[in-house]
Amino acid sequence: MKIPVSITINGRRYDRNVAPRLLLVHFIRDVLGLTGTKVGCDTSQCGACTVLLDGVSAKACTCLAVQADGTSITTIEGLAGDDGLHPLQESFWNKHGLQCGFCTPGMIMASHELLRCNPDPSAEEIRHGLEGNLCRCTGYQNIVRAVQDAAAGGSQ
């Protein structure tokens, strides 16, 4: 069985026929070739696959592509604008909020959700807000600093 879906990703609409069992993350990566979104644990724990689905964060490994039919999705590739990197990307860069970089796309999308819900979070609230995203390199310290920097408009 194939189901027609129409999914807008980073402002561009994609019409495809997909198998019902195809996960949204595989639709994004394998069907469309947008490989910024990662597959880490594949069990909705590590957050490497985090995207924005109609503006709110979702783990794309635990969503079927057919469930996303008609929605608008933002991936890490869609954050930067014509005027350069998104402030969160700038802050992760400036504060060294990454080492190997594998968790970074999901970490930035989860940080986007965190700042949407709480534009001025404390360090403790940042750690809570990002508890669904695992980083095995940084020890999180610089990730927290990066989110604080982005919340402060890049001034820290």
């Binding site: 957050g47 709110v56 969503c63 508890e131 669904g132």
Partner: peptide
């Protein structure tokens, strides 16, 4: 429950 992304879905 879980984390923010899980709670959204």
């Amino acid at each position: 429950i879980g984390d923010p992304a899980v709670r959204n879905r």
